[in-house]
Nucleic acid binder design. Sequence first.
RNA 1: GCGGGCGUGGCGGAAUGGUAGACGCCGGGGACUUAAAAUCCCCUGAUCCUAUAGAUCGUGUGGGUUCGAGUCCCACCGCCCGCACCA
Length: 876
Amino acid sequence: MSNERFDPSVADGRWQAAWDEARCFEADSNSDKPKSYVLEMFPYPSGRIHIGHVRNYTMGDVLARYRKMQGREVLHPMGWDAFGMPAENAAMEKGVHPAGWTYQNIETMKGQLKQLGFALDWSREFATCDPEYYGHEQALFIDLFNAGLVYRKESEVNWDPVDMTVLANEQVIDGKGWRSGAEVEKRKLNQWFLKITQFAEDLLEGVQGLDDWPQKVRTMQENWIGKSQGLEFAFDLSNGQKLPVYTTRPDTIFGASFVAVAADHPVAQSLDNEEARDFIALCKKGGTTAAELETAEKLGFDTGITARHPFTGAELPLYIANFVLMDYGTGAIMAVPGHDQRDFEFATKYGLPIPRVVAPSVDEAAKPFDGEAEAGEGVLVNSDFLDGMSVEDAKAEVIARAEKGDWGVGTTVWRLRDWGVSRQRYWGTPIPFIHCADCGVVPVPKDQLPVKLPDDVSFEQPGNPLLRHPTWKDTTCPKCGGAAERETDTLDTFVNSSWYFLRFASQPGDKPFDAAEVAKWLPVDQYIGGIEHAILHLLYARFWTRALAHVGLLDVKEPFGSLFTQGMVTHEVYTLPFNFTSLDGRVIRVPENVGHKHGKFFAISDNVEVLPRPARPGDPMHYVNPSQVRKVSEKAYFLDSDLELNIGKVIKMSKSKKNVVDPEDIIRDYGADAVRWFMLSDSPPERDLPWSEAGIEGCGRFVQRLWRLFGQYEENASGEDKDLARKTHQTIAAVAEDIEALAFNKAVARLYELTSAAEKAAPSDSRSHAIRSLLLMASPMMPHLSEEGWVEMGGKGLVAEAAWPEVDPALLVEDEVTIAIQHKGKLRDTLSAPKGSSKEDLEALALASEKVQRSIDGADIRKVIVVPDRLVNIVT
RNA sequence: GCGGGCGUGGCGGAAUGGUAGACGCCGGGGACUUAAAAUCCCCUGAUCCUAUAGAUCGUGUGGGUUCGAGUCCCACCGCCCGCACCA
């Protein structure tokens, strides 16, 4: 075998082509082998592959290749979540068509994924913006409509009055439109909704069965669905109206000191009072998100109306309050400031009483509050017939009395709201409905699907291009044949990602999927993606699967059997403590515009020399891209100069902080295998992975180290090396266990250990077996290197189609173990003993230790604890 | 604000309640070399000491349970993530 260096620039492409030609990663739906569906969340085609994608897909790839080696029929598909706002933003900013921009990005990114050698079944690839895909989606949407799971209602949106457009929450910054800077208004629009709340109980119960999901994701889903038991009752208002309120704390009813309604509550809306209208208008400013509403300063307006307390008869003031949500409960609350923090802040601000009705004990009924509400457990006080009861008992008592007196009822309320799927945008799935003046809302007949997006649209004017298009929305009513208009809203892109995993499993031409074929592959055996999808995407996909099963299209309930959420890739940030100034005084603030040649800096635009000048206080921070940084032992320098940079925090890679690393650059420099190895090393996959130049260099070195070791493989070596053989078999068993637990960092550490052991060992049959096993175990992680080494070792066929090495259980067992000897819990000595030694023998050995005797120093031995094969602890 | 998570050497981290720091990175020393690159070997938590068979401290902070706690319990501090039109 040649002892030349492994050259990824040649080997990577060679093996990628070989895999393609052998079509070894195409899944066979008719296979007899046990199936394994490995899926990573498909990417949005934003332009180029991000290092976070590389990490995500490398993990999935290792698992997919490993399962194949274990004899599974593996489905490992890839596609594109291709609808969404960035394409429209590009259209507005660069004048390119969203479709052209998107498909161009897909081509680029597919090429980048191929360079990484992922074992993907490209024959099943699709993009959600393909008319074929969204046409099937439209058919499914109509099926759900026919089953009564789709409806329309008025709902609030963020409205930008200058751009005349609806803004996403992320486009609202400090209550202003990101592009126009105009104050954002809340506006009501008639929109499409999916009845996810019909499945609330089922979705909640289903969480119980998701044993292979991270506990935190399960908890987040449960909290999101938010089932709560409480009391709904109505206050009699002084104006003669009845005001229904909902509370989860009926036990604290004697602590209610005011009543509050949301700004868009009918009682507030009906006020014939200019100040009230002004206050409601004030509440309409700013964003619509829960986070914004709840962090905003608590504001209220005293309506002058009062509400009669059902037990005490006291007249409580009625406020309009900005922290009350119309969408939750009845949009009105009884406020108990002593035991709810929001109510506490509000009461403090407006000088309302803060009575105590729950205390640590009955004796502490008069205990003052320490600047905040007390929401915890305790006993009821100052509460008439409830005094002395626990919170739990008091809740039941109040509900019982309300139901008996027929003025209230115990109810279950869900935090989960129906899913608003309307988007007033172009680049999405057109909602397949027609508005007819006579027949109302009518679905497009299925034989007319897909309702395709028009190509001839412009993004130069504000507003929705579909609404503005001169002819697209003109059509005829399928029912009466009269003139009618198409719906111009498109579907939320979360709808696209709610069933793509079904289409990967089965893609007939004439329908969205074949239920029987889907049933062969689903549920997804391992789903891998970012924690940012812990709630919405996963909940919507679970709902969509149930909804399709509900209408009889599917026989699957939970789509994802096992879920793994991986961490982000982070990188330190570099900042430039200088500006560059040319001799004529021009200041260059962007480091990317500066080059370095022959010890001098120059402006790239015109090649004129520039000099670094210390930044002045108040100058903006200049971030420097890693590609312009030279690192020498913990210090960072600008380009090849001796100009030192400041090193900042290690944070998520982002364009604005310029701490991004382009995967294509590092693949070119180190090869796909080194990059893949780095993605798996060191950090546990669920945690953040800090990118470092030194780290990837270490991985590059290890690739070469393994390559040299492969070169030492001898086909006919003789002799046995029992220690190495045991180590090899232990490693095979442990690495398999680690990969199955997705603990790639641990698998990597074990491969390093076996590599070191094999390097140090003398040639023997055991050593050749160790090297061959190493190659096979490393192959899911470093497939190109492994294929290349396999050829050199005279292996048959492709490693990609090889089997995982077998473990000999007899070779796993150690015969000598190290025993820790403690005195009073502190380590005093260690000694070696045969595995399985008796407690008596171990105790005798421990007491014979000189170090232990010195530590005991003649004291009485009270107790000796012996843990077989582990330790002896002597207590004096 | 509400909900969730995470804190171990210079860094990433390992450790079924049982030898804390496996493995990797950085750093230091050495070998090879005319030299460099590459490669290989050794050292590398802190403090103390009479410093190669020594001692003490040490897993965010303060308590607790236990023969024994990074691991279990309580309280606190810090950082990170999600919050319904980003994907």
